[in-house]
Design a protein around this nucleic acid. Structure first.
Lengths: 210, 210
DNA sequence: ATAACTACCGACCGTCCGGTCGGTAAAATA
DNA sequence: TATTTTACCGACCGGACGGTCGGTAGTTAT
């Protein structure tokens, strides 16, 4: 769990996690600015003053939630991915695991990373740094693939961003109980990212891999 | 130009377009809720009361900007694309033109479509309808390709959304004067979308096209 | 049994924001 | 030249919002 700047002695982690989850869902739906502290408190069956027993401010709550999301991303995607030595398999795992983290609804916390402008400069810097670390890891995987001659001739920076675009966009259209379930949606994205939309046209003159 | 609900006789279109562009840039950077009417007015060298000479309310301004963005999308992407009969060429054109519309900065208006929650239900319905029309057109192109056996085995709905994700995400990372210019960025996205990241592995058993 | 702490609440405050209104100077129109 | 219209502005209002403060009922520790 990520730490929390605590001026009062920390309440039970369980309640705090519930507050994060609830707040994240509301903020995700309405946006940070459009969400009042009262909205969050009411959703928790509390008054605003009651909620302030747990949090130190609206901004800090947002910051804590973002850290929570980035921590999840690291735990469930980046850290396990680092164990995979083959870059192609690793890339596949990253896309799949990240996509499922997004579709898993509550874990949709991740996209709160959008609301980064609402933070103080210091908070902003820290979040940006974490995101940057993940991005670099993703791009490094692409670089390895390229060095191994297994990748199409594309700019790895643009590719990494495009990947994140596809995955993060999931949160806008994926819906629980829709035509695709979580795993199917993730699978589709993996397929598109790795192989594109069109069938390969030229069958000759493809060099250099098994 | 899209229409504007006008209670006062419409001022010069030129000034109005400038207001849209300026407002769009600020809202794009800070978000709709975090942008005050004063922010927009000051950026235009006006007072809030002065700006209210041109607009009928903050929500309606947002709505007008969105319509403007969707109108641009239709004019520069969908309408010309409909002239292209070959679906593969059409898809390529759509991705390229849409991506360039996003990178063109000012035209970044399009992503304001994000702020859809701030609208009234009636406005929301109209914007959603327009977006839906564009989405259906895109997916229809993919369906044609699939029927012609030219597409990988992917769900066309998921593919269309993924495409939009890649393109819309451009606005978050593309920067004027960066390593890639507008056309290069668009090219990269076209390549990734059409051919994926990995080189085709199996050279045989690919059936059915030229 | 008492002291201390936790988990809240009702009432309140200052600020900022969307929006209005009555005006005014300049330009267009007659 | 008289009149209307355009393009603004200063001052103001009501409401919502983030945040604070002084409590208090229930639980835990001593």
């Amino acid at each position: 769990m990520p730490t929390r700047a605590q001026k009062k002695s920390a309440p039970t982690n369980e309640r705090l996690a519930e507050i994060y989850r609830t707040a994240a869902q509301i903020i995700l739906r309405k946006g940070y600015d459009a969400t009042s502290v009262n909205d969050i408190a009411n959703a928790l069956g509390m008054t605003k003053a009651g909620l302030y027993h747990y949090i130190n401010g609206k901004k800090e709550l947002l910051f804590d939630i973002m850290n929570f999301g980035l921590w999840e991303l690291d735990e469930e995607v980046a850290t396990p991915a680092r164990e995979i030595s083959d870059p192609a398999a690793r890339l596949r795992f990253i896309i799949d695991a990240h996509a499922r983290l997004v579709t898993r609804g509550q874990g949709a916390i991740t996209i709160l990373v959008d609301e980064v402008t609402a933070l103080t400069p210091a908070q902003h810097r820290k979040i940006t740094q974490s995101k940057r670390k993940y991005f670099d890891f993703l791009r490094e995987t692409l670089n390895e693939l390229k060095a191994a001659g297994k990748m199409q001739d594309v700019n790895t920076t643009a590719a990494a961003f495009s990947l994140l675009g596809m995955i993060n966009w999931l949160s806008r259209w994926f819906q629980q109980g829709g035509a695709l379930d979580e795993q199917q949606a993730a699978d589709e994205i993996v397929k598109i990212a790795l192989h594109g939309l069109l069938k390969p046209v030229k069958l000759k003159a493809v060099d250099g891999n098994q």
